[in-house]
């Protein structure tokens, strides 16, 4: 991995610095990462079976997604993308809604009141400014809320990245910009995404602190995000975090990475697996055994299967229902069109 970056847990599971959480919490976060992976692999399998629309796997990014959400509280906001299902789930977005969304159903976005997680952004880069807006609202409303936005290296090339970072800097919104630099934007490698040596260098241009971390190191993610969240919550404004990680899988299930990259680099990153690393740490601290591992795996599997079952049990919208959520009340125009659809099929 290139450049200077914060690392606390080495790939072999030994510590370079202080663990930001205790062993019990580490076990909880490990459990959550396993749930994320089971969910991810299940969705990939379901897509191949034709049960899901296109799916964007996040394998290899579990430390980023669970670790970044770990410091958040109930009043905080998460504004993330189609590749951030584990983060969204860990922030309270029900798994059934995530799966429902990927089956191709708008009710995926109909999450419970009180869960401040927006449905995943599908277009790249337009959503980061929303976390500036929600953070700004928290500031005006005085609720102490922090907004976390997650995005990839590709999104930093969008003009909206600039506008979001600039607004956050100008208004000192409590926004944490968490970039998962996973090396690839579909087929474009990081080296062609930017001429900057590191994305974290961009933070200074917006007058905000930036930190570059090992994104496959759960402890580095938790430590950096905790500091950023505390800074934001105490009125210190936004932080930009560049987490170095790797997209082990394809961009989506419709993508074929064999057209643009070799397996060797991917294999190297597989050896830096974020879940294996935490397991090694737990083993070294006498906080892991096989029966617990099996228990965690079974629970994760049951949880995912239950969500799948619930999502698939829901009937698709009727013809009429597709008109129901354009406005608070359907306009006469929409009611007329609904009648046309019912009349003519």
């Amino acid at each position: 991995m290139p450049g200077d970056m914060l690392q606390i847990l080495r790939p072999d599971g030994t510590l370079v610095g202080d663990a930001p959480v205790d062993v019990d919490t580490t076990r909880d976060l490990y459990h959550a990462m396993v749930v994320g992976r089971v969910y991810d692999r299940k969705c990939t399998a379901m897509q191949k079976q034709g049960r899901l629309a296109t799916y964007a796997p996040f394998e290899g990014q579990e430390a980023c997604q669970i670790g970044a959400v770990a410091p958040l509280e109930e009043q905080d906001w998460v504004v993330a993308t189609y590749r951030d299902a584990a983060a969204m789930w860990f922030a309270g977005y029900p798994m059934v809604n995530l799966i429902l969304g990927r089956t191709g159903d708008e009710r995926g976005g109909q999450i419970p009141e009180g869960v401040n997680v927006l449905p995943p952004s599908i277009t790249v880069g337009g959503h980061m400014i929303h976390a500036v807006g929600t953070g700004w609202a928290s500031k005006l409303q005085g609720d102490g809320g922090v907004s976390l936005t997650m995005f990839g290296d590709g999104a930093t090339s969008e003009g909206d990245f600039h506008e979001a970072m600039n607004f956050a800097g100008v208004y000192q919104t409590p926004t944490v910009f968490f970039c998962q630099n996973n090396g690839w934007a579909i087929s474009l490698p990081f080296e062609q995404q930017t001429n900057a040596a590191a994305l974290v260098d961009k933070a200074i241009g917006y007058g905000m602190p930036g930190v570059r971390i090992d994104g496959n190191d759960l402890f580095a993610v938790v430590a950096a995000t905790t500091e950023a969240v505390e800074t934001a919550r105490s009125g210190g404004g936004p932080t930009f975090i560049e987490a170095m990680t790797y997209r082990i899988g394809p961009h989506t299930t419709a993508d074929d990475p064999g057209r643009y990259r070799t397996e060797e680099a991917t294999d190297e990153w597989r050896r830096s697996d974020p879940i294996d690393r935490v397991r090694a740490y737990l083993v070294a601290n006498d906080a892991w055994d096989q029966s617990w591992e099996d228990e965690v795996a079974d629970e994760a599997s049951d949880q995912v299967e239950a969500a799948v079952e619930e999502a698939e049990a829901l009937d698709p919208f009727t013809a009429g229902e597709v008109f129901d959520a354009m406005f608070a009340e359907p306009t006469q125009t929409l009611l007329d069109q609904r009648d046309m659809l019912r009349r003519d099929g």
């Binding site: 504004v79 500036v132 807006g133 409303q141």
Partner: peptide, 20 residues
Amino acid sequence: TPVAESGIVGAAFGLAVAGM
């Protein structure tokens, strides 16, 4: 605001979603 129309509309969106 800074001279940034996408920022203006996008920030307004976030504000509105969060109850403003």
